[in-house]
């Protein structure tokens, strides 16, 4: 009995001790917070954005009694500002956080091992390889997808603030910072269209992202879903020193 009391780690009812597993703290609290704030904002932005482009059926009554479009647009603008501030915080954390906090901001295409990893992961997703590899941060293919998402996010923030500046006016700070978008696309109708397409790009990313996270959690025998909640990645196969 005393022996069991002193045993560390997970035990079953009979005192059988599991073998050690590798657990690594990957996603620090600000990174996790950023992830979930992003997720929430993206849901709000997609829904409110959809109803800005294709509004709901007309509401009855006097105009002075209703403010439906106003509230929908408010939700969109508020979520947009939150996602922008969250990105700024995330960029700050890339400098002060751990190695994995920097990963999504660049692609190490000069690294041969990394390039080999992209190729390997492609084969893994095409069912051409039997055993998966385990990675502490993003796997190289996931890394590419994350980097692409960051580009879309920046694109959406720039076009979003540019469109917002149309309402706040050409003397606003939004126009001063993001008015250059209209230098590239002089007709804001085009900016609206690209902003729409950007939304769909992020929706597609979300589909692939959630699928890959669930699949990897099961197939690659490493934690994915719980990692973005606890920050720790557990590699489930037994590990021997």
């Amino acid at each position: 009995m005393n022996q069991i009391v002193e045993l560390q780690g997970a035990l079953d009812a009979h005192g059988e001790r599991v073998e050690a597993r590798q657990t690594i703290y990957v996603y620090e609290a600000p990174v996790r917070l950023w992830h979930w704030v992003n997720a929430l904002c993206i849901v709000v932005l997609c829904i409110s954005g959809w109803f800005i482009g294709s509004p709901l059926p007309s509401v009855p009554g006097e105009a002075s009694q209703n403010f439906l479009m106003g509230y929908i647009r408010f939700a969109h603008f508020a979520a947009g500002q939150v996602i922008a501030v969250a990105l700024l915080m995330r960029i700050y954390w890339a400098f002060v956080g751990n190695t994995y906090a920097r990963q999504v901001f660049y692609l190490p295409f000069w690294d041969k091992t990394w390039l080999w990893g992209v190729w390997f992961e492609l084969k893994w997703y095409l069912f051409l390889t039997k055993d998966p590899k385990k990675y502490i941060g993003h796997n190289p293919l996931g890394h590419v997808a994350m980097f692409a998402f960051m580009l879309f996010l920046v694109f959406m923030i720039c076009t979003g603030f540019a469109l917002y500046s149309e309402g706040t006016g050409i003397d606003s700070w939004q126009h001063a910072l993001f008015g250059w978008v209209f230098g590239i696309f002089p007709n804001s109708q085009d900016v609206h269209t690209f902003h729409h397409l950007g939304m769909w790009a992020i929706v597609i990313f979300a589909i692939v992202h959630i699928y890959a996270a669930v699949r990897e959690d099961i197939m690659s025998r490493q934690s994915m879903i719980s990692s973005i909640i606890s920050g720790e990645r557990v590699f489930r196969d037994d590990f021997r020193d």
Binding site: L197, V203, R215
Partner: peptide
């Protein structure tokens, strides 16, 4: 338009994901 193009591509991707999951 942007929504039709986007919804079509998203539908194709979702179908691809479903097929991939099925094969897995």
């Amino acid at each position: 338009n942007a929504d039709k193009v986007g919804a079509t591509v998203a539908g194709v991707v979702a179908a691809g994901v479903a097929a991939h999951a099925a094969v897995t």
